[in-house]
């Protein structure tokens, strides 16, 4: 069966160790987590895990059922990229001297839809949001000028179909 990228969204209670419990589901199946993010959802007190994994659909179906089976998980679903809008954020720390030369800064900000968060004598911090390929492109562009630090967040993702979002909302708040 074909391997694909899936985004799992799990709605949970906010309890110590639950992250561990959820990630162990992947560990025992020898699955690598591509990225993971957790934050409070639109419903106060209910947290949302966004987990990206590359595997088969059959495997992800089973995985989601096992995640949902955990006592402190209210609901878990999975989607392919086309069904969601997703984003990542990247921060780049570069030497001010090497980048602030000529029209380079303007070009990279304009072309990449990036922004400068902070600027010091020695270094500047550039921020860019986008899909992985886009933040990667900027990283590759900046490399020749010397990237002092680079960090990219896990994926965050929302579901496109209104019906499904509303259904989910109902399920996780109607208890």
């Amino acid at each position: 069966m074909e391997q694909k990228v899936f985004t799992i969204s799990a709605f949970t209670e906010n309890s110590i160790g639950l992250l561990n419990r959820i990630t162990s589901m992947f560990t025992r199946r020898h699955l690598n987590i591509e990225s993971l993010n957790t934050s409070e959802s639109e419903s106060p007190g209910i947290y949302r895990f966004t987990i990206v994994v590359k595997t088969t659909e059959e495997q992800v179906q089973k995985l989601v059922l096992q995640i949902e089976k955990q006592v402190e998980v209210l609901k878990a679903v999975y989607h392919v990229d086309e069904e969601t809008v997703f984003q990542e954020i990247a921060l780049y720390k570069v030497s001010t001297k090497s980048v602030a030369d000529g029209n380079l800064v303007e070009k990279l900000i304009r072309d990449n839809n990036a922004r400068i968060l902070s600027m010091e004598q020695e270094f500047m911090i550039i921020e860019k949001t986008g899909h992985k390929a886009e933040t990667q492109e900027l990283l590759d562009f900046l490399r020749p000028y010397g990237v002092i630090e680079f960090v990219r967040s896990g994926r965050i993702s929302v579901i496109k179909p209104m019906e499904e979002s509303e259904d989910l909302r109902k399920r996780i708040t109607n208890f």
């Binding site: 179906q61 089973k62 059922l65 096992q66 949902e68 089976k69």
Partner: peptide, 8 residues
């Protein structure tokens, strides 16, 4: 009784 058993 366990939904995770179906099709496992």
């Amino acid at each position: 009784i366990d939904p995770a058993e179906i099709n496992k």
